[in-house]
Design a protein around this nucleic acid. Structure first.
Lengths: 125, 125
DNA sequence: AATAGAATTAGAACAATTCTAAAATTGGTG
DNA sequence: CACCAATTTTAGAATTGTTCTAATTCTATT
């Protein structure tokens, strides 16, 4: 673990805000002002392969990074906002229902966040 | 619905293979050899907004398109291969567990496809 | 046939990410 | 410490997937 990898892991784990590579780059530059964006991508990929961080993908948006402890997500259908939610470990149930063994799963609950809901109501939709 | 939109919808619905925009472009060109890629993106976006097709996003891969009837997915952790699986409609359970109301959900079971599993075993992993 | 509105086109532009090759850093070993 | 090899970082170019733009074509209506 190099100093950059260490700090990047720290940033990803301490922020629960699902940052993009670019946001992590900005945050990292506050500590190491000369770091290159490629270093961020290198280390994010390495940490991801080593399963030290998670990647969250929502259609049409840049990948976001997340701590690795199991939990699920709420995704706003309108604005893509991402929030944590934890429904507990459903692996056993899912395996039973699917009739095969899985490594893990990725569960996103699609909803309308408060902000988007009030936008929608305003416009009488 | 224009002729392109109609044909694109037909391609997406008839193939259960989760095609990328590019693959849909190729397929469409077999019927309309002069069609432009932008037309494919325009129509895919339109159909998606009208909720006539689904978009499936896996980290690091181009978006893939899918029929809209509810079903879940198996995603191979190694190669990203996507297969359909249907665990039934879990909306009610998930809402109960999460304590809020949702529009829908996106469930991916992560596994190793047969091919990747035998690769893995060969290398003694 | 004239017109307006929508759809399509080609290609440029853009954003996110990966690649490349060179330079810097790190960790042993003699 | 001095050397070497391996790893990491760097800057910038390249690639990929997608969107944008403005001109053109198509369609439907008068």
């Amino acid at each position: 673990m190099t100093k950059y990898a260490t700090k990047i892991l720290e940033i990803v784990e301490s922020s629960h805000s699902h940052m993009t590579a670019d946001q992590i780059f900005d945050a990292l530059r506050r500590t190491y002002p000369t770091v290159a964006l490629a270093t961020v991508y290198n280390n994010l990929n390495r940490l991801w392969q080593e399963e030290k961080i998670h990647k969250v993908s929502v259609e049409g948006m840049p990948d976001r990074y997340d701590r690795v402890e199991r939990h699920d997500h709420l995704v706003c259908k309108k604005c893509g906002r991402l929030l944590d939610v934890d429904l507990g470990d459903l692996t056993a149930q899912l395996e039973r229902a699917a009739g095969l063994s899985i490594l893990s799963y990725d569960l996103k609950l699609i909803y309308l966040c408060d902000e988007c809901r009030s936008d929608t109501e305003q416009k009488g939709m």
